[in-house]
């Protein structure tokens, strides 16, 4: 084994072209290898694979056949898929603002140094860390005819509650309500941390200038919180486009297709009907929609997000 003596200190960059850089590059590649291989193996290759599959009629069992854009055309002309996209859109448009309002409200409520603040934070975060399937099962018991909500209605109003999970008009509302309860804890924590990071001196200065609590909220708290809100908004948007477990466990997409969302439809096409071609196509539709919406968000952020530098 040869152990080379340390090279004498040389004047920098003897070799042209910077082979030192190249050696660094190789080392960097080594360090990146674990995460890159994971990304390649579990994200990029399946992604490209699913794009390929979306151009095929690809049953799990049986003969595969190249069909070009047929899967895309078929989905775009399918009234059920229209309804599924509409459901997803309704879910996103109602759920995301509701989630942000509830989590911001609760974060504001516990942001002053009130007694038992840590306890509230913990309590509000519990729904987020409990398994969603278990939550959905409990909510199913609450919602069902003869369940606690129905009994409460009977006692207070003397009439039965709407059949939340059996009525086309109520099912999506029931799913959204359960999702907000399940999902607000994470954003609340983000907002709570964001609020704590706002320097007290800003509030004090505004007070001295004569700003009331409402004015301070609009002109100090919200702008200072906008980076947190931007982050929360992007993440919530992406996850709510991908909503699956809530309708799957609560209503199984019913009644009819009233609560069937895109990912639930994808699952059903791929793993109940065994039509992987259509399932991949739905996946790509979803991917394109999420990309577009996220890109728009990033473009729009200049208008309302203030990075405090």
């Amino acid at each position: 084994m040869t152990v080379s003596a340390p090279a004498p200190p040389t004047t920098p960059v003897a070799e042209p072209g910077g082979s030192g850089h190249r050696r660094d590059g190789r080392a960097a590649l080594g360090f990146l290898a674990p995460s890159t291989s994971g990304f390649l193996l579990f994200t990029l290759i399946p992604l490209v694979g699913s794009l390929v599959i979306s151009f095929f009629a690809w049953p799990v069992l049986g003969r595969r056949r190249f069909v070009g854009l047929d899967n895309f055309v078929e989905l775009l002309t399918d009234p059920i898929f229209h309804r599924v996209m509409l459901n997803t859109l309704v879910f996103v448009l109602v759920y995301v603002p509701l989630n942000v309002v509830v989590s911001l409200g609760l974060a504001l409520w516990i942001s002053p140094r009130i007694r038992g603040r840590g306890l509230y934070r913990l309590l509000f975060f519990i729904p987020t860390v409990t398994p969603m399937i278990a939550n959905a099962l409990v909510w199913r018991l609450l919602y069902q005819p003869g369940g606690p909500i129905d009994q409460g209605f009977q006692a207070v109003f003397g009439m039965p509650s709407p059949n939340f999970l059996g009525d086309n008009r109520w099912a999506m509302a029931a799913v959204i309500l359960m999702s907000v309860w399940q999902g607000f804890g994470y954003n609340m924590l983000v907002f709570s941390a964001g609020l704590d990071a706002i320097p007290q001196s800003l509030h004090e200065a505004a007070s001295i200038d004569g700003a009331g609590p409402l004015r301070r909220f609009w002109s100090v708290t919200l702008p200072m919180l906008s980076p947190s809100m931007f982050f929360a908004m992007i993440m919530t948007l992406i996850t709510s486009f991908q909503v699956f477990v809530q309708p799957y466990a609560l209503t199984a997409g019913g009644p009819g297709v009233a609560t069937e969302t895109m990912v639930l439809h994808l699952y059903r096409e791929g793993f109940v009907q065994f039509d992987l071609g259509t399932a991949s196509t739905i996946g790509w539709f979803l991917f394109m929609i999420i990309m577009l919406v996220t890109a728009l968000q990033f473009l729009g952020q200049k208008r309302w997000v203030h990075y405090d530098d």
Partner: peptide, 8 residues
């Protein structure tokens, strides 16, 4: 019969 619900 009791009301039916959409269920998993």
């Amino acid at each position: 019969a009791p009301q039916v619900v959409a269920t998993s």
